[in-house]
Amino acid sequence: MKIAITSTGKDLNSNVDPRFGRCSYFVIYETESKTYEFIENPNKNADNGAGPASVQVVADKGVSKIVSGEFGMKIKSLLESLKIQMIVIKEPTKTIQDIINMFNK
């Protein structure tokens, strides 16, 4: 299973980015092979519609879950129709490694 995690930086010690659509990086983590890749978010400074455009980035990667600090109104129904689960992390001090560890438990 692939999951996307929003990240403030491009290494595993970075904190989870509290914003979804305008996060700095996406981490795409594959739970079976335990491999990951960082993707710079091209929509960070988009004028309009950063949320849906970012859904497109991670949905293209075939993720079934997204972990972020919050999700905007425009994308909730979109993610539901794509059957992608939203996981909200309310602790901004959590690192990408912490979140990966949660999935590996």
């Binding site: 309009n48 519609g49 849906p52 497109q56």
Partner: peptide, 21 residues
């Protein structure tokens, strides 16, 4: 689209119009 109002994932044959945008 200048406004990111069309959402498309070609491999999955998904296309949607985000009317609010």
């Amino acid at each position: 689209c200048e406004y990111n109002a069309i959402f498309i994932i070609p491999p999955s044959r998904i296309i949607k119009v985000i009317e609010e945008l």
